[in-house]
Design a protein around this nucleic acid. Structure first.
Lengths: 218, 218
DNA sequence: TGGCGAACCTACGGTTCCGTAGGTTACGGT
DNA sequence: ACCGTAACCTACGGAACCGTAGGTTCGCCA
């Protein structure tokens, strides 16, 4: 007759006792993974606990509930992506709009490749009443950054700057959707994809460069 | 003491008895509405029944279950959208790629405006194990139609036709995301949006037309 | 008018899941 | 050696939801 504590489940970790922050981070990672592959509704706290080889109350001791876990995961991911944009666009030596476009495209593609789960979550729907009427809150946020840059550029050229919103949505949508498609294809290479996207956005279909190159050194 | 059949709920319809197909279509419409506003998981059969002022088993007598209802709704919507594309592209007097682009953009924007719920469903996630790794199955399907057209055009110009996939994803993504954004803004007008999208896709950022016009007569 | 079948209902079983109450183990400082 | 506290567990209440069993109403047609 086995003792009550015969916790030798095959495949389960041998009962690790972590510190508070370690466990919290582990749960956040697992949450990101599950929310990415199943979405919010289909993810259960029970499975989060199971994947951490831990019981449910442990999860509740770190987060107020499912919503809270989700919010923290999303917030973390938003900060990560926005940080990448800030780094890559702010540190740029102001090389004109075309280089900016290249940088932005590469930044997003890099993020998609490195943090695939995070990207999936940002692209998926929010729980239910989340205000973000359009896509997911952040994609929109990115678009509004691009909008400022474009508005400046438009003013300089004499176009109507109030159209910058439309064009930035179009550009961000182009890159985001292509990135999502590229996730499941992985070909051609990321740099090639970026070059073609810039080619399309910059030259247009009427004057496509048959063999586009990136200007930025990597 | 009220009788068992005192079904005079205020606000509920006065107990209508429909024919089989009528009821089925009503349930499909309600399903589309709910799936669009809440997604698959958050929608319950009970609410579908409630909105139809009908009991749950009625829903089960028309559909095998939640999955089936969802599949039929999606299938119907895919057929509707594909039909629009077939009509608008096949009946075109072969006016060259630029007119094709205009037609495609307008077709998608029209659809988004007329069948907003349907579009939302197609853009949202599938239940869970739905193969569609990329976006939603159909957006991809549309993209592959565009791909054929583009591949032809590329061959004619001497570009690599195998890149048509990438460019079609980029173009469809651009229009789809802009359409989604436009849903919540509704300004500028649909025709203006289409004109600017074509402007961007055709001329590129480097040679934008400050006041683009559509070529097609509406 | 009588009866037959389609449309519909109430009621319930079984499952899943969120969130909590209350008790147990092990580590770290003294 | 001892004790406080942080980490963790089992067990359960309560709610939502899917899907079905069995019975009732209504319209049509002979």
């Amino acid at each position: 007759m086995a003792t009550t504590h015969d916790v030798t489940d095959p495949g389960a970790h041998p009962r690790v006792r972590m510190s508070g922050v370690e466990r919290r981070n582990q749960l956040l990672d697992i949450g990101r993974e599950l929310f990415a592959e199943r979405g919010y509704e289909a993810t259960s706290i029970e499975e989060v606990a199971a994947r951490a080889s831990v019981s449910k109350p442990v999860v509740y001791s770190h987060f107020d509930g499912k919503d809270d876990l989700y919010d923290v995961v999303v917030g973390r991911e938003m900060a990560a992506l926005l940080g990448r944009f800030t780094d890559s666009l702010a540190s740029a030596p102001a090389g004109g709009p075309r280089k900016l476009l290249e940088r932005a495209a590469l930044t997003l593609l890099d993020y998609i490749e490195d943090e695939t789960d995070g990207f999936r979550i940002l692209v998926r729907d929010s729980p239910v009443g989340a205000g973000a009427t359009t896509f997911s809150g952040l994609i929109n946020d990115i678009a509004s950054r691009v909008e400022y840059i474009l508005a400046d550029e438009f003013r300089g050229r004499g176009y109507q700057p109030e159209l910058a919103g439309l064009y930035s949505q179009a550009l961000v949508g182009m890159v985001a959707m292509t990135g999502q498609w590229w996730l499941s294809v992985r070909r051609p290479s990321k740099e090639e994809v970026a070059a073609h996207l810039v080619n399309l956005a910059w030259n247009g279909l009427s004057a496509l460069d048959p063999r586009p190159r990136l200007v930025i050194v990597r």
